[in-house]
Structure formats: structure tokens, C-alpha cells
Simulated scan of single mutants.
Amino acid sequence: SGEGIEGTMKSVEPSDAAISMYYGSKVIIVPGYGLAVAQAQHKLYEFVKLLQKNGVDVSFAIHPVAGRMPGHMNVLLAEAGVPYDIIHDLEDINEEFAQADAAIVIGANDVVNPAARTNKSSPIYGMPILNVDMAQQAYVVKRGQGKGYSGVENELFYADNTQMVYGDAQKVMVQMIEAVKSLG
């Protein structure tokens, strides 16, 4: 486990996470730099369209510092053809996480760390975060168990309602697409 963090990281297969989201009613996606590195935005949007076809309400939540420059995630999503009306800034969507069946974090770390809200000794304390921890279920797509840019262990990864989906974002998205398509 992490530095004084209670709980353990639990992993789940991409197919199981995908099927769970496919049968949900509301899913919020949090893209981060790892999505850009894997160049997975097109596969992500293909997955989103499959969820929408099944009636799932899908939204994107963009943190102002996600990526390597302001607007980085917006550019990536626009490049993939994601309609602008399902892309929301932090202040416009943060309240909705509590009503989400699932939130999926793809390559983001510090911008979803509850320590920013709860741990006064954390160097990221006070930074606005996306409230992923308030979703019924959180899935975190990540290549490994490393820390984010700040070097702070992420409390979200150890939460009871969080499961880690390990792997390169593009490969994970391909597996999620295949799992949903296999349902017929």
C-alpha cells in the first residue's frame, strides 16, 4: 500500500470494466497525459460511441491542468471527433460524479487525488480536483503503480470503490471495445 494510505490497489481486467460501464446509465471519463502518450483518443471515442449506442449517458471531465499545456485534452478529444457538448470543465461537471455509475480515469493522476481535498500535509492540498472518488465505481487506466507528476501517492487508487486497469491506454481501449462488441 501507499505511504500511510489505508486499503490496497485492486486490479480488474479491461473487459470486466468495459462490461460494467456498458450496463451503467452514467459514465464520466477523465482523460490525462497518459491518454496523449498512448495516442488512444480515437479508440476511446470508439468505446464511447458503443456505450452511447446502449443508452449510457457519457461525459468527459477536463481538469484545467490535465496534459502538458492548457487545452491539451480538449485538442486531443476534438482530434478524435468527440462532440464538444459532452466535454465539460471541472467546475461544470464536478457535482455530477456523485450520480455517476462509473468514472474512468485514463492516464491522469494528481488531478483526481482526494489528498488535495483531505490531507493538509500533502503538497497538493488545496488544488482543485475532479471528484472521481465520489462516483459509485472508479476505474483507473494506468501503465503501472507509479506516482503522478507531483510525486504524491494517489489515495484514489486505494479506495474501496476503485479498481486499477493496468496497461497502455490504447491497448486497454482495444480490449474494452472487443469486450463490448462480444456482447452482440
Rank of each mutant, 00 (worst) to 15 (best):
A102Q: 10
I62N: 02
H72N: 02
N113Y: 02
I104T: 12
D110V: 06
Y33H: 13
Q136S: 03
P31G: 15
D57Q: 12
V152I: 13
E155W: 06
L156H: 04
N113A: 03
M127L: 15
A115F: 04
D89Y: 08
R117T: 10
Y125V: 03
S150T: 01
Y158D: 10
D92P: 05
G55L: 08
R117N: 07
A66P: 07
L35S: 04
A100I: 04
M134S: 12
A135T: 13
N131P: 08
A61K: 00
Y84P: 04
V152C: 06
S121R: 12
G34D: 05
E95D: 15
Y45W: 14
Q136I: 01
S59I: 01
E79A: 14
V132W: 15
G144E: 10
A103M: 06
I86S: 05
E91H: 07
R68N: 10
I106S: 14
E96N: 11
N113I: 12
G32N: 05
V152R: 10
L77A: 01
G146A: 11
K142T: 12
V111T: 13
A98C: 05
M73I: 12
Q145C: 05
L130E: 01
P83N: 09
I129C: 09
A116V: 01
N113W: 04
E91F: 10
E46S: 13
D57W: 07
V112K: 01
D85G: 02
I93Y: 02
Y45H: 15
M69H: 01
E91K: 14
L90R: 07
V140L: 08
I87F: 11
D133E: 06
S122K: 12
G34A: 01
V82D: 09
L50C: 03
G126A: 04
Y84E: 14
V30S: 09
N74T: 08
D133T: 06
L130M: 03
Y125E: 05
R117M: 05
T118I: 07
N54K: 14
A116G: 00
Q41V: 02
K147S: 15
E155D: 00
F60M: 03
L51V: 00
V141M: 13
I87S: 11
G81D: 05
E96F: 13
N54E: 13
L156W: 13
P70R: 05
A61G: 07
I87G: 14
A80C: 12
S150G: 11
N131I: 14
A100M: 00
V141L: 14
L76C: 10
P31S: 13
G126R: 07
G32E: 04
E79W: 09
R143D: 00
Y33L: 06
V140N: 12
E96T: 08
